[in-house]
Design a protein around this nucleic acid. Structure first.
Lengths: 163, 163
DNA sequence: GCAACCTTGTAAGGCTCCCTTACAACTCGG
DNA sequence: CCGAGTTGTAAGGGAGCCTTACAAGGTTGC
């Protein structure tokens, strides 16, 4: 193995490596989720569970943060409403809009999912080294803040409203 | 921000962070690839460019390493053949099988793609710290070897046949 | 040497997820 | 109150992948 061998066939592009890790990690998550009482939740539904919280969010906002069209998110929300995880509440401030928020069952699923993600991450910390996984997370959080700020709840406040 | 706040909404699951990084990185790659003379290559075609080399590979082998069905890979190869990037050569050892290998143009594209991936990775090394990106790669290579050995060329020698 | 069985690749059809185009209801600045 | 923009919906399509089914060629046991 010569040094700096970018043409070496054992060199795998970084996005490929990131995907392999993501898929392996996500597969562990999914396997456990499917065995739970929330087994009917599919990966697509994630865009709602990731961003919706408390009072609820408009379709437009979810779509923007998830980088999907409103129509796509609309279908996903329809599905989630049918399954009893989400609901649409008329926005009191704008009669066109509806606030999408979680039902009690939806919040239970969201909480369960987050705990599961944390659990799998801990498992990987034990497997590959707690410090290395911590450093991985730290770097990735920095990258996410720089490359996709809208996907980071903390940074998604486009409106300069104070309070 | 309380310590160990897994229920904090600013905590993003690790697979999500990995996906954000992968997509951002891959987007830079794609943007440059599309402007090149190989602009008609789509992400799906990657499963062929990633694994095919020299003498060629059977459809079955590509499918297994890419974790896709033979039919899916078959369609992708059809497309690549039409575009002049790949070709099917009858396997001399097995009249059922065909070895899928790259044309000259296909090899040029593969080489160009690999250089482009390396270039984008260097850009990120400058942006986020060369040592951190190196550590990231090291960890991810270890994870890939453990979680998806078939996707790692070096480890994909399933058959114990000696040289 | 041949029958039963296992590969290799192909064919046909379907599903999921997401997109584009088009629109009706509503809000808002002038 | 009227044009312009925004919010969500409807309808149709396409990319990418899967399942079922099969024909042609190999392999194994007896």
């Amino acid at each position: 193995m010569t040094p700096g061998a970018k043409n070496d066939f054992n060199w795998i592009p970084l996005p490929g490596l990131l995907d392999i890790a993501s898929e392996a990690l996500f597969a562990e998550f999914r396997a456990e989720l499917e065995r739970s009482e929330f087994g009917d939740i599919r990966p697509t539904h994630g865009c709602v569970f990731r961003f919706v919280q408390g009072e609820g969010l408009r379709l437009t906002d979810i779509a923007e943060r998830a980088k999907l069209t409103k129509q796509s998110v609309g279908e996903i929300v329809d599905d989630l409403v049918e399954r009893g995880y989400a609901q649409r509440i008329p926005d009191p401030d704008d009669r066109r809009a509806k606030l999408i928020c979680l039902t009690e069952r939806g919040e239970a699923a969201q909480s369960h999912g987050r705990k599961l993600f944390a659990k799998v991450e801990k498992r990987w910390a034990a497997r590959y080294g707690a410090e290395r996984i911590a450093a991985l997370r730290e770097l990735l959080e920095e990258i996410a803040a720089a490359e996709a700020p809208l996907a980071v709840p903390e940074l998604a406040h486009t409106e300069p409203a104070a309070a």
